[in-house]
Design a protein around this nucleic acid. Sequence first.
DNA 1: AACCACCTGTGATAAAAATCACAATCGGTA
DNA 2: TACCGATTGTGATTTTTATCACAGGTGGTT
Lengths: 189, 189
Amino acid sequence: MDQTLRDQITDISKLSDEELSLLIAHAQNRQLKKGEILLHEGEVCRAFYLVEKGYLRTYYNKKGVQINLSFAFEGNFTANLKSIKNKQGSEFVIEAGEATMVWVFNIDAISVHFNTHPQFTLFVRRLAVRLLLASEEYSNLFKLYTPAERYQHIEKNNPQLLQRISLSQMASYLGVARETLSRIRGKNH
Amino acid sequence: MDQTLRDQITDISKLSDEELSLLIAHAQNRQLKKGEILLHEGEVCRAFYLVEKGYLRTYYNKKGVQINLSFAFEGNFTANLKSIKNKQGSEFVIEAGEATMVWVFNIDAISVHFNTHPQFTLFVRRLAVRLLLASEEYSNLFKLYTPAERYQHIEKNNPQLLQRISLSQMASYLGVARETLSRIRGKNH
DNA sequence: AACCACCTGTGATAAAAATCACAATCGGTA
DNA sequence: TACCGATTGTGATTTTTATCACAGGTGGTT
């Protein structure tokens, strides 16, 4: 039943069966409706999230306009690491893009076991490095490529993203106007 | 003599005196002339670098045009973490922006001690998280701000950068043409 | 001082993208 | 089927930025 959950955790870092069970015992299950917010702006993030069904969208609210920063689909983790690490209010919002089921791993609950289970420390740090490397990869798109090249990069390296989210959401993610992305897409026929 | 070196390391993660000495024993000192390359394109990065004097510039070579990605000044670490982690050739070049003195911490040399000195593992991971969070912070400039806002953000949060590097280097770092940055700067009088 | 390499400012023009406006399409539903 | 809301395509226009060209300026070196 929660075998996939176990697989997704051990994909980050190997844990003993006992440690796995202990970690999972701390995971809380949450059901979110489309548009429901998991982490509010200004709220300190105290957990990382694993998506079981649906997807989570992270965005920045710039004067009422939402700028998409990341998407996490089935089997992927997400969090606001800056907020967690610095214990500061989140600049970003994490919300459900569809009806979504997530596992919530509360950091405080887990950190209680850091001394007795050093593998937990490793797991959390590996997860952080993985999330941050992915974030760096994505953000280099903006430094190194033009809007059209960014779209082609997604087409090539992350095509499932195009199936799951609307053109408008993708335009915000790629940092271009919806109309511009529509024209880019038209050119590539 | 190397008290500042010790301080810069313990700023990342606390180590015992013995561990500090062991770590420092693995650090190699390198002198670089202006323009000398520390990490070549295609080379696998196997170390992290601590700048003692001068500065290191990381850039991406796009069809002969250098696009600046980061600068590390006195007391700061840098590396190509993606290359280290995935053991893949670096897409980026790290070179000295001035006559520069660096401490080179070879990962393989240090990892030998990971089992006997778990604090080394922690140190490396903390360093990685710090570098990646800084990288994320910087890259959000591109998603969230216009060129003029980016420049003002640097003026406010990192003014020493403007003292140390030329307008041309800064323009490449901010992702705008040199002329555009000159005009932005003119407007802010 | 004379020279040179490099950097910066600025005008003119071209290219790219944003914005505005509106028509067309698609799904779900009464 | 007819309606409604959300999404997408597309033309016209404006705004922003890049590109090109060139004129100072600066600092180091001989």
